[in-house]
Design a protein around this nucleic acid. Sequence first.
DNA 1: ACCCAGGCGGGCG
DNA 2: CGCCCGCATGGG
Length: 307
Amino acid sequence: MKRSVGRPFGKEVHCFNMKDTFESAQPLTFHADFYGNGRLVYFEGNEKFDVTHTGTVADGRIVLADSGASKIYKVKQRLRLDDDMEDIYSRINTDSFIDQAIQEYKGMRLTLNDPWETAVCFIISQFNNVKRIRMITKRLIDALGSPVYDRDGHMLGKAFPTSEQMSDAGSKVLGSIGAGFRARYLESAARFCSENMDLYGLRRKGYDSLKESLMEIDGVGDKVADCIALMGYGKLEAFPIDTWIKRMLESVYFGKERKGVDVLHAFAEERWGRLAGYAQQYLFHYSRNYKSLHDSNDIRNANIVLS
DNA sequence: ACCCAGGCGGGCG
DNA sequence: CGCCCGCATGGG
C-alpha cells in the first residue's frame, strides 16, 4: 500500500522517556527544540524531524508530523529505539545506587548522532555549562548552517554546519559566537577534520582504535573522545568521565577516596563492560539532578548495596 | 562583586 | 610522566 506524503505515520515503542532523553543534555539536545508534551524537533542532514511521543513511558507510539516510513527508520536509529532497555537494565543494575538512577529515569535512551556534530558540541562543552553550550551551538548553527527549506521554499531552519563550512569560515566567525578560548579548538578541529581526518571513515574502527584517533583532534582529550565514541559512533562501552561522574564514583564506590581517571575507567569496564556507556548516562543524569549527592549526607544515607 | 561550569593543553617538578 | 594551572564568557 502506498502511503501518501504528509500523512502522519506512527510506530510502537516500549520503555521510552522523551523528556529525560532530551534533558540528559546529549548532543542531540544542544541543537533541538523540546516543546514538552513529548514533542521534539531537530534537524539531521537536510531534513527536519518533528517527532511526537504519545502514550506512556512503558507503552507508547512515535509519530512523525510530516513523513512516511523512511524517516521513521532514521528516528529509530537516532533515538536508539531498538535498544532493549529491560535487557540493558538487567545487565547494568549492579547495586542499589544505579538501581535508583534506573528507576528514576526509566526509558531514557542514549542517542546516536552525527560524529562531527557530536565532536563540536563536546569540544564546546569543556569547562562550560549546559545553558551556555546550547547558546553557543545555536549561534554557530545560525552563523554557518545551511538553510533547510520545505517544498514551497519556506525556510524551516538550519542544518548543523559541516567541518568544511566551519573551516572555510575561519577564526573571524568562529571567534564571534561566544565560544571563548574554545574557538581556536573549533578552528583547528574543523580544518583537521575537513583536510586530514575523515570522521565518517572511522565508523568501522573498534572502540580503542577509534578513541585514539579522536584524541588526535585538537581540543579532544580523554573525556570528549569518550563522548564522541559513545554518542557519535554508538560505542556503548565508552564511559566518559567528567567532574560529576568522577565525584559520584569516588563518593559512592570508593569511600570518598580520590582516584585517577585510569582507575575509574578500569572500574567501569570491570563493572559495566560493554554497556558502560548506558550506566554512565544514568549515573550522570542522576548525579546532576541531585546536586546534594556530592557534598554531604545524601550519599552516605543512600543505603548503597555494592555487589 | 564574586563563583562556577559535562576539560584540555602546556609547563613545571 | 603525573600533577597543576590558566583559560573566555555568561548566568546565578
